[in-house]
Design a protein around this nucleic acid. Structure first.
Lengths: 157, 157
DNA sequence: ATGATTGCAAAGAATTTGCAGTCTC
DNA sequence: GAGACTGCAAATTCTTTGCAATCAT
């Protein structure tokens, strides 16, 4: 849908101010990156992408902490042990919560369907939990990595 | 069901040998602990429980790594950011994959029902993934912690 | 101007490895 | 006896913090 233009910059900046945060160069870059990403990112990945904007790792670390404290960003414990961060739905365009991860090449595919929502409601009702949410990750070996011929792209270790 | 007796030791030991691993004191303690635990454990928690058996942290670390390489233990990224480890079904008594975690007191309740299995199969078929598995964690605020009167037991931070 | 925010660099944790002695088979 | 395992301690990596300078309002 939305095409990504320079006007996005203004968008991120005003969003920041709306949230009572100062709109600095680095923060804008981080918000835009998070907003554009289809998958949760590690701090290192975020830093990697925004260092060109002259943004230090410590800034990434502290700013993400602030956003998480304000519940604008959600921390996700990834199946491979990394900790990742995902912006919460903003503008109403909703970020994914379900992923399919290849155990060989580590490719991540978002999954749109949600089979957990009704289940979540049911469990919440049954056990009296409030403010319930969930995290689901599927892992397996993707078609490419199953073919011995195709050497797993991006394979580590 | 199964009551936990000294004969368990022999069981863990022979299981280890069956897997081609040497049955040392520390390893037996770790296997028994994992087998008895209803929830995945961190390395620190495992070490905590087996240090009395004179088992070093490095041993826990290396042995768990070996078991994971052999796919006898599964690594679980916990919703609070910790990495936990869970033994794979052995004897056929099946370990949980679903948990409900209180965000206030951090209590963990296993969930027996699995709504994901059919979905998992469906996704695997649709996208051609092999060896698929999943991890689902629900989080919310438990009934006790919702009552302002009741001070959350075990509350941290 | 002024207080929030940043970069740098160092402190603190957690994870991982080397090696010589010990224990299992 | 031989080689797999272990404990100890050091190395590496990741996370978090202090502080003076800088930037947004």
């Amino acid at each position: 849908m939305a095409t990504r233009t320079a006007s996005q910059t203004i968008d991120a900046a005003s969003w920041l101010r709306k949230e009572g945060l100062r709109a600095t160069h680095g923060r804008i870059a981080i918000v835009e990156l998070l907003d554009a990403s289809k998958v949760p990112l590690t701090l290192a990945e975020i830093h990697e992408k925004v260092r060109k904007a002259g943004c230090d790792f410590a800034t990434v670390f502290r700013f993400i902490s602030i956003l998480e404290k304000k519940e604008l960003v959600e921390r996700v414990a990834w199946i491979d042990g990394t900790t990742r961060h995902e912006i919460r739905s903003r503008d109403g365009h909703h970020h994914h919560h379900h992923y399919l991860i290849c155990r060989t090449c580590h490719k991540v595919e978002p999954i749109d369907e949600c089979v957990v929502e009704q289940f979540e409601d049911q469990i919440a009702k049954e056990r009296g939990y409030a403010g319930i949410s969930h995290s689901l990750q599927l892992s397996g070996v993707c078609p490419k990595c199953q073919k011995p011929a195709a050497k797993a792209q991006g394979k580590r270790s």
